[in-house]
Design a protein around this nucleic acid. Structure first.
Lengths: 231, 231
DNA sequence: CCAAAAGTGTTCAGGCTACACCCATGT
DNA sequence: ACATGGGTGTAGCCTGAACACTTTTGG
């Protein structure tokens, strides 16, 4: 079976930049898949695939994520569309890139899937990537770094229950800069969007920290009343 | 002639939201074209058209802008990609939307072109739009309102030489909020990115204001030294 | 008792807001 | 002279930055 059109069409794909955080070692991670076929066979790439006709581009991104890496129920947001005609050596392929954030602990189900292997890499030491994926990834990094300051995205990378130190480590890791502990805590707590769970860490070899969760409800209230988040 | 593919492909288009500013009447304007054919014949729409194979998506946007409205040499930036399968009643059409800013005075060459009429509409009183163009326009408005605060985009909407009052009016018009004159001037001038041209307005019936231009060179210096613009 | 991380306040400087009057020009 | 917009300074407030010690817990 085949499909014919009056004018030629570029192919349309989605690519999903999936970020995670190694909370214990403070490493910013990205999920890559090894390409099983040409071109760039054996090279690492951002997961992605073709958009089906009749399927929204957003849905295609979600579908590919699940098919290729078993990733489900995640934060996803459109990043940018890459449309240079030579970005794929075979033909003109336009790709809509997405930024995806996951809590690694929830997603240990990764890797096993399709033909291709999936693996987490530290953003700071990446292999050479296929296509223009280096460029896409660079943009995704910049976007996250920019947006995390004024949008409570970061929580997507943490477990549901987290300590203030973990939250601070997250910001320090993504922004690649040290932050003052007291100032950080004051500022975060002043926002009124953390719920103190009344629980503490278990199995730590030192004073146990209080556990918090992100209070989405409170956050929406803040936004509605004209306020806004800023880490 | 026709083109055949193994799998069906969505069509790919670009849509360009072109904003202008009526400096004399402080009106935020958008350029629309009247559709000459079905669907939505006779309705107003955002200018746009199909992406050619072998042509980058950005280039397609520039080409359509010029073909359809005679708009040339402008600020352009990718906005978002709209990919719902039902956004065009004929078939699945994915559209990459662009945000375009022009100085109306430079672009009086508009309107005359292609088959379709082009016309400026005040953003505050728009006709019903074709397709999902209402949604695209809403997004473009929000993007400009958001970005104008921390990126010196606004200058693209003004003539090369402008007064501080015109600049303030621009911000008040786009942000839809009144601003304090003294504070505005202090803040803007503190950024050090305006060049005092040593000229004054002509043909005004009151004290003539000094003319300024945006100093791109100085701006880049500020950015390089870690600073940033904020209106 | 030692190691390791949790938790907590104050001071200072710079930026933001609010606010009102005189100036230059054309008619 | 008057109408119209152009142009200017100050004081209070709030926010952000710098900075060090005590507490809790497990080993």
């Amino acid at each position: 079976m085949s499909y014919t059109y009056k004018y030629p069409r570029p192919a349309l794909t989605v690519d999903t930049v999936v970020f995670g955080l190694d909370v214990d070692n403070n490493k910013w991670l990205v999920l890559l898949v090894e390409r099983g076929g040409e071109p760039f066979k054996g090279k690492w790439a951002i997961p992605g695939g073709f958009v089906n006709v009749g399927e929204s581009v957003d849905d295609a991104a979600l579908r590919e994520l699940e098919e290729e890496c078993g990733v489900k129920k995640v934060f996803i947001e459109q990043l940018y569309t890459f449309g240079a005609p030579d970005r794929d050596p075979r033909e003109h392929v336009v790709s809509v890139a997405y930024l995806v954030l996951v809590n690694i602990k929830d997603q240990q189900i990764i890797a096993g899937s399709d033909a291709s292997r999936a693996e987490w890499f530290p953003v700071k030491s990446l292999p050479k990537l296929a296509f223009d994926h280096q460029k896409i990834l660079a943009m995704a990094k910049k976007r996250l770094q920019g947006k995390i300051r004024y949008d409570p995205l970061g929580f997507e990378l943490l477990p549901k229950k987290f300590t203030l130190t973990q939250l601070q480590n997250l910001y320090e890791t993504i922004l690649d800069t040290p932050l003052d502990k007291r100032n950080f805590r004051k500022k975060v707590q002043a926002q009124g969007i953390l719920r103190d769970l009344g629980e503490i860490q278990k199995n730590v070899t030192h004073r146990a920290a209080k556990l918090y969760s992100f209070d989405k409800r409170a956050y929406r209230k803040v936004v509605k009343s004209g306020g806004h988040f800023s880490f």
